[in-house]
Amino acid sequence: MTVSSILKDKGRDVATITPEATLQDAVNMLAARRIGAIVVTDFADRVAGILSERDIVRAAGRNGGDALTEPVSAHMTREVVTCAVDDSTEKLMEMMTAGRMRHLPVVQDGKLVGIISIGDVVKRRIADAELEAESLKAYIASG
């Protein structure tokens, strides 16, 4: 299975924010959408960074409540690992495990086209395993 098939099922909607927005803006968006990370994009819809709940907690730990008035750009991860629509779920699992990441923006032709979470990958792998098990049962029963 590929990123494309996951996006086909879950959709391509991605929560984004600008680097100039405040951490408070990001917190509000994360809470409203019930998500764990937000992609920071520039004016051309290119990935400029990613901001996760962990980044916000670290900022609050360093600067207390004052961190919420600071720009997203001060706390985002700038070197973002991304994936492509034709990447396999196996490759995603390797990338996420190696980089200890829970979210991978999907980029095509330099533009953000989706986001994949570790939950999306696990859900797909479970569905694939269940389908394989059912196919094997049907094969054995017909034999």
Rank of each mutant, 00 (worst) to 15 (best):
V40H: 00
R62S: 07
K111V: 14
L30K: 02
D66T: 12
T89Y: 07
I118S: 04
S88C: 03
R62N: 05
V107F: 05
V80N: 04
E132N: 14
Q24S: 12
L104E: 01
P71Q: 04
R58Y: 04
G64R: 01
G65H: 07
G65Y: 07
M1C: 05
S135W: 14
D66R: 15
D13Y: 07
D45F: 06
K111Y: 09
D128F: 07
C83S: 14
G99W: 13
A31D: 09
K137P: 08
I126K: 11
R78Y: 08
A59L: 01
A32P: 04
M96W: 09
L7V: 12
S142Y: 08
S88M: 05
G143S: 13
T82P: 06
D87A: 12
V27C: 13
I140H: 06
M95N: 04
A31H: 09
M95R: 11
P105A: 01
K111G: 07
T77Q: 04
K10T: 12
G49Y: 00
D86G: 06
R78D: 08
R62V: 05
R34V: 09
L104Y: 00
P105Q: 04
I35V: 03
G49R: 00
R102E: 08
M76D: 00
P71C: 06
R34S: 03
M93V: 11
V27F: 03
E53F: 01
T22G: 02
S142C: 09
K137D: 13
A138Y: 13
D128H: 10
D13C: 05
V40F: 00
S5G: 06
G64C: 08
E130T: 15
A44N: 09
S117I: 08
A15N: 06
A60G: 05
V113C: 06
S73E: 08
T82E: 11
A21S: 07
I126T: 11
R12A: 10
A74W: 05
A31I: 11
V40A: 01
A32W: 05
G36D: 03
V57S: 02
E79R: 11
G143W: 08
K111M: 13
V3Q: 02
V39W: 01
R54V: 01
G99C: 10
V39R: 02
T16S: 11
E79I: 12
M1K: 07
V121L: 09
V122E: 07
E134L: 13
I38K: 04
T82V: 14
P19E: 15
R33A: 04
K8Y: 12
V80W: 03
Y139M: 13
Q108I: 12
A48R: 08
P71V: 03
T2S: 05
N28S: 13
T82G: 08
M95V: 13
D55A: 06
R46C: 15
I140M: 10
R12S: 08
A44Q: 14
I126P: 06
L51I: 01
T89G: 10
K123T: 10
S88P: 07
G65W: 15
R100T: 12
E53S: 00
S88N: 09
P19C: 04
E70A: 10
E70K: 14
S135P: 11
G99H: 15
I126S: 08
D45A: 12
T77G: 07
V72L: 04
K111L: 11
T16G: 01
